[in-house]
Amino acid sequence: MTPLIRAENLGKTFGASGGWFGGASDQVRAVDGVTFDVEAGETLALVGESGCGKSTLGRLLLRLIDPTDGTVRFEGQDVTRLSSAEMRLMRQRMQIIFQDPFGSLSPRRTIGQIIGEPLEIFGLARGRQARRDRVAQLLDQVGLPPAYMDRLPRQFSGGQRQRVGIARAIAVNPAFIVADEPVSALDVSIQAQIINLMQDLQRDAGFSYLFIAHDLAVVRHIADRVAVMYLGRIVEVGPKRLIYDAPQHPYTQALLSAAPEPEVDTISRRIILRGDVPSPSNIPPGCSFHTRCPIAQEICRQDRPPLAQVAPGQLAACHFARPNPIPVADAA
């Protein structure tokens, strides 16, 4: 069976070199040779720290950004080769939920107009009344009173706006939704509401999520599979259970252990990495993690390890991959 989405060797370099005024080429390799699948109906979480390229990767899949190299196949069709007219039609199948509930809604349009826009574009509800009826139904689905249809976004709280953004995304019955940090801008007590809503909608409609997040507790709750990114590359991917219980890449292990949790017993297991994430415009040679890796050897500075299978369904890009590779003694 073909996966819903297959990204192959996908890459994006920002910043043109040379140009009229020459100058130093300020090229940033935001995404580098990424290959992965998203299966129909699953939630694949993409985690990593800021600047690791996870948001760029989400946008490459939707072709909101054109890739520099590689392909994205959606239901077998290479979306990177579609004309802009064909791509517009394809947007009925793939949607996005944004992080910023304040910026992602056009401030001078009513929420009815915002949610109705995709319906209008794809002719899904013909006529004004039919469209209003469908918008009312969508508002109801995301837990907002349909009577709010003619209000402007600024009258709503962050959580309510995020519901509007979700209604806009599901309006066209997409098969795939990129959710780019959908709860990280919300209050803690509101996050659970939105996460539950997203899960309910997925259970009813059967679409897939690419869930981009930095909150590892949320990811553990919502994801089926998890992909970990570091400096533009996927360093580990696999089923949630394996990633959380037996991470095989030292970065995954450190990342998971660093996340503070409201638990009584966490502190003892913490691995503190040295130094900062290197700049994406100056990625270290070999394994890009070797500058911070507690178990790096000479080979890590020379050869970049490929993403290879380490357990059923689990792939890691490390020369020394094994469950929990950093010894606990180092964690102190």
């Binding site: 947007r91 910026g103 809604l105 401030p107 995709p118």
Partner: peptide, 25 residues
């Protein structure tokens, strides 16, 4: 602004994006 990207993502044509989402703002 993210709402411009949102308009691209729902498949709105560029002239309409400019007319509906850029000019009023």
């Amino acid at each position: 602004e993210p709402y411009i990207e949102a308009a691209v993502a729902v498949g709105l044509r560029t002239p309409m994006i400019i007319l509906r989402h850029v000019v009023p703002n």
